[in-house]
């Protein structure tokens, strides 16, 4: 009988995978990611030129 590898935990001690996947779900899908990225880049690229009269950043 081979001794079990100490690095391998006792399967009985394992908990089920956490059902908490909200954080993952918060990841935008590829399409929304692309849209959001393009919007962000456009906004940042134009920011120094944007003639905003009332922004007092």
């Amino acid at each position: 009988m081979v001794a079990p590898d100490p690095a391998t935990p006792d399967p009985a001690a394992l908990e089920p995978v956490s059902p908490e996947v909200e954080v993952l779900a918060a990841d935008p899908t590829v399409r929304t990611f692309r849209i959001a990225t393009i919007a962000m880049v456009a906004a940042l690229a134009l920011a120094p030129w944007a003639a905003c009269t009332r922004c007092s950043l």
């Binding site: 003639a51 905003c52 009269t53 922004c55 007092s56 950043l57």
Partner: peptide, 8 residues
């Protein structure tokens, strides 16, 4: 930025 138009 602040005072953009006023600057001009």
């Amino acid at each position: 930025m602040k005072h953009f138009k006023r600057g001009l």
